[in-house]
Design a binder for these strands. Structure first.
Lengths: 109, 109
DNA sequence: TTCACCTGTCAGCTTGACCTTACAGGTGAA
DNA sequence: TTCACCTGTAAGGTCAAGCTGACAGGTGAA
């Protein structure tokens, strides 16, 4: 995991509303409009937050047709596990260096 | 851990420069001016970032006198371990509810 | 005294995150 | 047709985070 990926996840989790969204999705997947009502925000705002969560790989959206033919976008939570310690941060920064010069200095001798 | 505490840590770690700062402090404590040079930023900017890290409890500063009598503020890294999963987020949000009404519903019977 | 270090803070700028309002377009049911 | 749902996005405003430059004040050494 590079530091960029790490920062994407940290930024995605670093907002109270997005924690609420994750909590609301923990038990079951919910479609966008219903999710907006449950967490008490406007739909456009929710879209913005979902975009961040999705980019971080924490949620996933699926557009489906409901039983009565209406288009519904269901959001589901992707299980994740991320341990933050000094070594994991060092590893992320090290991954940056290894991925930016993949053919020069990452020998393990 | 409440969600506010969690968010403070997430926000503190959610910046590339602050990850660099943590990496620079991983091996040894460093005084402010030297740290600024090592991570390549101005001292005032570093102070701002250190403030966030300190509020999150990730680093600690100690003002000391060097052997030649000059005032030096040494920054040291506090070891930490934070595991991010859906359950830990749910627990943080639950802690909010328990701490806002400490005398009504948190009975454990 | 001048220099080279050090700590600490403030005023002011820029930019992006966040949020709201409004719009365009689709469906099934009354 | 009108209503009540749904998806999706664009325009614009607000505000805090981030960053810079300048300042005030301390020390020991040359």
């Amino acid at each position: 995991m590079t530091s960029e990926e790490l920062l994407t996840v940290l930024a995605a989790l670093g907002h109270p509303l997005r924690l609420q969204i994750i909590a609301a999705l923990a038990a079951e997947r919910v479609h966008v409009s219903e999710l907006a009502r449950r967490v008490g925000v406007s739909r456009p705002l929710l879209y913005m937050h979902l975009e961040r969560l999705e980019k971080a790989g924490l949620v996933e959206g699926h557009l489906e047709l409901s039983h009565d033919g209406k288009s519904m976008k269901y959001i589901e939570l992707k299980p994740f596990q991320l341990t933050l310690t000094v070594p994991t941060i060092l590893a992320a920064l090290q991954a940056d260096r290894e991925s930016e010069q993949p053919s020069s200095g990452e020998r393990s001798d």
